[in-house]
Structures are given as structure tokens and as C-alpha cells.
Design a protein around this nucleic acid. Sequence first.
DNA 1: CTTACGGCCTGGGTGC
DNA 2: TGCACCCAGGCCGTAA
Length: 307
Amino acid sequence: MPELPEVETVVRGLQAQLPGRRIVEVRFGKTDFVVNPAAIEQHLPGQRIGAVRRFGKFLLVECSAADPARPRDAAAGAATKGAVGPATKGTMEKDALLIHLGMTGQLTIAAASAPVAPHTHVFFALDDGREVRYTDIRRFGRMELLRNGERERALGALGLDPLEASEEEFSARFGARHARVKALLLDQHVLRGVGNIYADESLWRARVHPMRTGDALRPEEMRRLYRALQATLREAIRLRGSSVSDYVDAEGARGEFQLRHRVYQREGKKCFRCGAVIRRAIVAGRSSHFCPGCQRAPRRRRRSSKK
DNA sequence: CTTACGGCCTGGGTGC
DNA sequence: TGCACCCAGGCCGTAA
């Protein structure tokens, strides 16, 4: 399941290979996960790839017309700091291919002559004989070409990047909410990039039960959660993500953080910290793994049902 | 407004 | 061997 660390790993792999390459052709298999395939086929061929960045769980592949007679574009885009935001207003946004990997999406670089994996639905042929391929068994992913001015609409509502947020920002957001912390961690409008694996792993590390509500966390718990989240994400990036099913990086290699999971998919096994048996329960509609020994459940009774 | 929840996308794994 | 069905995770619509 590609979450922030997996997407970051893929982005780094693409960023090391793609900038400067020109896209010569785009070919599609199935397109039901592509917002406007015709626009992609029309606008991308001939463009040169610029930066590849991550925004939450989204990847952005920036492109610009490879016409050397117009060096102004490069100058305008070079100073771009964030991917979205009011700061981009007034300046020219480069075209950017927006990609979400969903559950089973893979973006890999391969020689055009290399065998094609099943469920590969998009091919971006490059000017060096290689191609970027998008493979997605379930096709829960998304792909869309964002043209000038469209980033705000596509990405503007997303929350803080958990690795960039300060403890104060994090506490303010969580402390103001009565929803369960598990739901808050997964809510992309609160934080962008956290999914089920890293929500569960961070909560275990922080010793916070997933059913606690944001506004009920004591200051030290809030601080532990903030730190646990960042530490977990950073370690997962260092280990190139979690490969629990289909995830691979841009070179097709699996990650290793699944070997460090403490609760995720460890139902029935012993807690590494206290020895209690890891449990699984549905919280916020999602399968949640936690240790009943060191993650204390909130007082029962979720909502007062007046009457 | 906030929160909770059901359903949808698809196909691999499971169990009969 | 075949086949029905559960389920994964993100997201969206709807209800309260």
C-alpha cells in the first residue's frame, strides 16, 4: 500500500533518473483510472521532464515544452518552492502529471524492450530508449494531467505534510478535533500522506490507542504521537518503504520496513514491548492493529445518546 | 459545521 | 478443478 514513505521512495528513484529526459510517446492500456487520457496523449509527447515531487501520497511529474527557443519557462519555474499554494498565483505553473498509486500502483523505469508485467496500463516512452511504466492490478490509482492553474484545485485541500509540520501545528489540528486519532491520522485533509500501516505503527510507538479522540490527548501523549509519527515515517523512508503486497520502487525493488512492523498485520502475535497479544479491530472503518497492553483504551461510551 | 458509516472501485486469495 | 465470496485501502456521498 503506497503511503508517504513508499511514494517518497518512488519519487526519489524517478527524480534520480528522469529530469532532462524527453517524453516521445504515451501509450495506454485501460484508461478508466485516467481523468483525461486524450489530454495526456495530446500534450505530453515532446515535453521535457523537470522535477519529480511528492505531495502527500501523490506524485507530481513536472514537464515543460522542450522548445529550446523559449528559455523563459525554465526561469519562471525554477524558483517554485511548494507544489501548490497562493505563492504560485501569478506565476506560470508547469504542466504536471499527477499520479496516485492507490493500493497496487507501481511506477517503474524499464528498457522499452523489457518484458511487460501484467496489468501495465500506461507507457511513457523516453528519448533514451527506456520507458516509465504504470502497472496497477486493481486500478484504484489515479492519473491526471494538471495544466497551468489546476494544482490548487487538485491538491489545495490537503493537510499538512507530517514531516514538515511543527509540533504546535500538529497539536493544534489534533487537539481541536473530537474524532478518533486513527481517523485523524488517515484524514488527508488533516495530514497528507499517512495511511493505515503508518497510522497503526505510529500509534503503537506512541502508546496511544486508536480509539482515543484528538481532543482527549494529554500534552505528553500529543507530543509522543507527533514524534512517533515522524520517527516512524523517517525510518520507513530509510528502509525504502513497506512491501506488504505489491509495492516496489522505481527500480522494481521491494522495501524492507515491513520487517520492522510492530503491530500491522501482527494480530495474535506478541507485542514486542509488553508481550500482550496484538489485536485487530475496525476503527474509523479500517482494520486497526494495536496492543491492548500498552495502548490503553479510552473509557467506553463513545457518544452520549441523549435520552 | 462535525463525525460516522456504507458503498464503490477491482481482482487475488481462500475455502468449499 | 472450478467458483462464489470476502477483503484490501482511499475516497466520496449521505445521514445524523
